[in-house]
Amino acid sequence: MRAKLSLIIVAVVFIIAGCATSGVSVERTAADTQTDLSGRWNDTDSRLVAEEMIRDMSSRPWLNNFSAAQGRRPVLIVGSIRNKSSEHIDTTPFVKDIERELINSGQMTFVANPEERAGVRAEKEDQQFEASQETIKRLGEETGADFMLIGSITSQVDAIEGKRATLYQVDMELINIESMEKVWIGTKKIKKLVEQSKVRW
């Protein structure tokens, strides 16, 4: 009986000492699978925002109005998408999703943003000295954008111990660069409730 008790004590002590396992398992999954692990902003949120913005932006009257008036597709540039939330959120994925879908749909044209332009312009300037006359790209022939896409992500957090409700709001606006008119505003809200257990084994 005592021997058994000793064994139990030894086992308990070992469990307490925390023999952690470091096994890693990897499972491939479809890129659009919803994976909510920590409750923070993730790829699913990014995708939902992109889908909503693409659907909304391409179905509003501003697009037909511009095409009818100008007889061509509008040219857009991505401006500042500010993160005003309480999480570090990379806005690049959903902005790229929006750009890709709208370019591929043939409804709009995008020009490079200031960061992208810097690299391309450096290349073009280099071509003026290094490239052959037949292949050289001319300076001052860039396409000027008609509209700038700007936006922000905000979040409101309400929390008590172990529970957190976060409302993310992504606002995007399309501004006519010449007239400064706002021709489209899109909003996507995502709310999450995260509950964390107070105890674990």
């Binding site: 308990v12 002590v13 469990i15 307490i16 000492a17 925390g18 111990e161 172990g162 964390q196 257990s197 107070k198 105890v199 674990r200 084994w201």
Partner: peptide, 13 residues
């Protein structure tokens, strides 16, 4: 924030 019961028991011992 999620406390381990086994560790808490260990701390008592």
């Amino acid at each position: 924030f999620t406390k381990s019961i086994s560790q808490a028991a260990g701390s008592l011992l």
